[in-house]
Design a protein around this nucleic acid. Structure first.
Lengths: 315, 315
DNA sequence: GTGAAAGCGCTAACAA
DNA sequence: TTGTTAGCGCTTTCAC
């Protein structure tokens, strides 16, 4: 019977068809549980998300679903709310359930400690890499993303570029500052003033815009560490009488639809390609399950999405 | 051994401890797969989400996780991207995996067709109810939410209240209009003009604010069908020279942090309590699994979150 | 209080 | 080409 339903084994086509017909009529659905017991594979992976808002881990989940073949392999999703105890708990639960592997989706790009409890299955870290180099991680090339953003500004005629970004402590803040400086340097330019470190919020963006206009009135572009900041900067600049993009061009990071498209004008933004991160993580996990772990850090490129906020100055 | 590890059966404490010690030392983790085969329960449920951005289904997932006891029962998450074919596919996959039940998280409040494929396990619909009354659904009391919003505006001294909302076709748009009218009527008031139907976007809110200011310059409050709309209205009003909340108070719906708190001023908003919807759905599902299905529509109340946009007029 | 054995639903190997 | 059987890892029952 198993042969008929799975298309394996030597069987006359007619017999196979007959068996399948009867099975269908009876509403018979073979149990993956029993099959798993025998084969040792559950075609199930754990997906641990640590950002409860899901802004980062949801796109990762979607990408992973793509790679996992639309239900061929399904994901048991666990939201740790960034609590290590809960994480531990979930990992144990996943192991008991004999998942074939685990994807850990981070909420910041800073390296994170590897999963505790020595999971006996492959683990792939997505977005935030594991601090253990022997683990397998998929990360975004944020440095290149920042560079692209700034190169785009330079290409469209901007020369006096400032950088307003998030909290000093974040790895992504440092990386984006580096990328910015790098791109400017390559073009023989320098950052206008120092990077403006603050929060990730619109409020900070508005504040920074006002301060920036005062201290550096000749700025003609701002690369912002996030879309929220950029949006605040857009509003702040407008209220200081500067026009976007005519006087000042703006680029953000995240390409988060609600913010980027609600912004006036719509925001040019660096897309972190999180779905691709998820897809890569899923594919790597499957490969690790079949052929053994492939440690290392895999990098996915960003993608600049150009909207009105960085249109060349009309003058 | 099973007796020792699960604390069942007649066993000397010492024996139990000894077995557990050895098991721990060997890194032995009992297989839930084998247990499921025997008991028929997998302690796994399917969670079908239909909104790929997760704005509605993620809070539902969190609530469900709460109810499912932190890993006691885990959720296999499937994102259908609102495609019925894919949904069908996922349902079959879940059934093969012998999930104990299924939660279907909607993306609009309009009733949706029930899951195809006659799942042999309990199904609970969350946020969007099933169009089949024999199913079990958990929905938000949006009518009461709208009423509360308007009552709040009236209580804080507003009398000339307008309503700017989303597309005519949506059930939640109709319900919110009804609630608004109801609350006004109870207070002996009437809506200023007709409801303004449009999109869910900020752009629409800005446009509507301008039009509204022109046609009804005496409006002193606007109840908006979403936070995005409200935010657009806030910006639009400000640009027409009206102060929020001094001249016009504003209330939105969704209580979506990024929008509500990025708004100037921060937005009073009707919270849809989606996490509670998820919790209720999870609890109902567990009950249905243990004691059989309990059909019907279960309603969860909204919660008004008051912020600066609806402060009483200072004058 | 402890050990042995049957059987959950499937697959793979083997016998007919 | 088809039917039979052992056994995946657990729990439950029953004999000791």
């Amino acid at each position: 019977m198993s042969k008929a339903l799975n298309g394996r084994g030597q069987l006359r086509d007619e017999t196979r068809a007959r068996v399948q017909a009867v099975a269908h009529e009876l509403g018979f659905v073979p149990s993956a549980v029993a099959a798993s017991l025998l084969t040792g594979r559950t075609y199930t992976v754990g997906l641990i998300m640590t950002d409860h808002h899901g802004r980062f881990s949801l796109p990762v989940l979607h990408g992973a679903e793509d790679a996992l073949g639309w239900g061929e392999t399904l994901a048991l999703v666990c939201d740790t709310r960034d609590d290590p105890i809960r994480e531990q708990h979930y990992v144990r639960s996943l192991i008991r359930r004999r998942v074939d592997g685990i994807i850990v989706a981070g909420r910041r790009t800073d390296p994170r400690p590897p999963l505790g409890g020595r999971p006996p299955v492959p683990v792939v870290y997505a977005f935030a890499r594991s601090s253990d180099a022997a683990d397998c991680s998929v990360v975004v090339n944020e440095e290149a993303g920042a560079r692209e953003a700034v190169e785009h500004l330079i290409r469209t005629g901007r020369r006096r570029i400032a950088h307003v970004t998030g909290p000093r402590g974040h790895a992504s803040v440092r990386t984006r500052v580096d990328g910015t400086r790098h791109a400017l340097h390559e073009a023989g330019l320098e950052l206008v003033g120092e990077p403006w470190y603050g929060g990730w919020s619109e409020v900070w963006g508005r504040f920074a815009a006002a301060a920036l206009t005062r201290s550096h009135p000749d700025v003609d572009a701002v690369f912002c560490g996030s879309d929220a900041i950029a949006r605040g900067v857009a509003d702040g600049l407008r209220e200081c009488g500067r026009r976007v993009p005519d006087d000042v061009a703006l680029v953000g990071v995240d390409n988060w639809q609600p913010t980027a498209e609600g912004c006036r004008p719509p925001l040019t933004s660096v897309d972190l390609n999180l779905q691709e991160v998820g897809r890569t993580a899923g594919a790597l996990l499957l490969r690790a399950i079949e052929y053994g772990a492939a440690p290392g850090i895999h990098t996915v490129p960003c993608r600049l999405v150009v909207r009105a906020s960085s249109a060349p100055a009309s003058g």
